[in-house]
């Protein structure tokens, strides 16, 4: 049996906003998410802006403290550890940010950017560090190494910068990496290249990945399993191809219907998409978060929120249509 690397249970990340007549109000960015990531597995978290996917990723890395719920990493509950006790976790879990223009220090050379985490965690001697940097740069194909290592980020293209960000995350030999929209800022022609590179490195080192994206079309080139988020909750989870072929949750159905594939016949068709907007995270609708937009809404959906449950092997959905 494969080991579960990360397991989160009923995770809630709420941010306090203001008091309203003595009552605390919260932005409920993540509101009751449970999921598992196995060793060497890539799980894609898909959702629109404001669905809580980035906050979920940051909470899993303990960059943001959860309001309630548990985070269990390789059998160890890390939810209540303070930052000193988390140092070991900082080595094993890494993040790749969306924007390679703002996530790299403009004052450091590429070599220094890659050396920084090694220095902070007091890993290896100076010579050994240099060897590790060279290997990391080879891994992400920033070669010839001499040409890049003394450059500054502004001298590189977007794709090259994102390679530096990947190298920086992987140089610590992490077991778990959160990649938050790693290709969405890149041009179409390099996007695929970076995606394939990440996939290759993920397989080579057996890293567990949480791939956060709003772009469903890129998911199947990177991961096997997908979790769809809406209003801070996971509404559907399952193997990517099955979910795309036969989406169960009405929101997933709308999301997939809204995505065009390049086909010149598209211009003659009107897409069937629901009106309305994503729920307010401070005052979400009662019951199912999707009920104001759902075409199959029933009384029950307004009164109580459906829980994620297994409909068939490996496929879970949070919708009363399937109970």
């Amino acid at each position: 049996m494969t080991e579960t690397v990360l397991s989160v249970k009923e995770l809630r990340t709420w941010f306090p906003v203001r008091r309203f007549f003595g009552k605390s109000l919260y932005v409920k960015a993540v509101d009751g998410v449970s999921l598992n990531i196995d060793a060497g597995e890539a799980l894609a978290i898909v959702g629109e802006s404001g669905s809580g996917k980035t906050t979920l990723g940051k909470t899993c890395l303990m960059l943001v403290r959860p309001y309630s719920g548990r985070i269990i990493y390789r059998g160890k509950d890390i939810t209540d550890l303070n930052s000193n006790d988390l140092l070991w976790y900082r080595k094993e879990a890494q993040i790749i940010y969306q924007d390679p223009f703002s996530s790299l220090s403009p004052f450091f050379t590429i070599r220094r950017i890659l050396e920084e985490p090694l220095i902070i965690h007091k890993i290896a001697s100076a010579d050994e560090r240099l060897a590790m940097i060279e290997r990391a740069m080879e891994d992400v194909r920033l070669t010839p190494i001499e040409e890049f290592s003394d450059k500054y980020p502004h001298m590189l293209s977007g794709g090259q910068r994102q390679r530096v960000a990947i190298a920086r995350a992987l140089i610590m030999k992490p077991k778990f990496v959160v990649a938050d929209e790693p290709v969405s800022m890149l041009d179409a022609s390099v996007r695929v290249e970076i995606l394939y590179l990440l996939r290759q490195l993920q397989e080579k080192y057996g890293i567990s990945f949480m791939y956060i994206t709003h772009d469903v079309a890129t998911v199947k080139y990177f991961s096997e399993r997908i979790a769809i988020m809406y209003g801070g909750k996971v509404v559907e989870q399952g193997p990517i191809r099955e979910v795309i072929k036969e989406p169960l949750h009405p929101y997933t159905q709308a999301l997939i219907d809204a995505i065009p594939d390049p086909d010149p016949k598209n211009r003659f068709n009107i897409r069937k998409v629901p009106a309305g907007e994503a729920p307010d995270p401070i005052n979400p609708p009662t019951g199912c978060r999707y009920n104001p937009r759902c075409p199959w809404v029933k009384d029950r959906c307004i009164k109580e929120g459906p829980k994620l449950f297994e409909v068939e092997a490996k496929r879970e959905v949070a919708c009363f249509l399937y109970t």
Binding site: E193, Y196, D215, T218, I244, I259, P262
Partner: peptide, 23 residues
């Protein structure tokens, strides 16, 4: 040709290509 081959499609499966180098 390459640009179209680099677009991920949702409903069909095909190997994606990329364009090496930069604009």
């Amino acid at each position: 040709e390459r640009l179209i081959a680099s677009v991920p499609t949702l409903r069909t499966d095909r190997k994606l290509e990329f364009i090496p180098g930069a604009p």
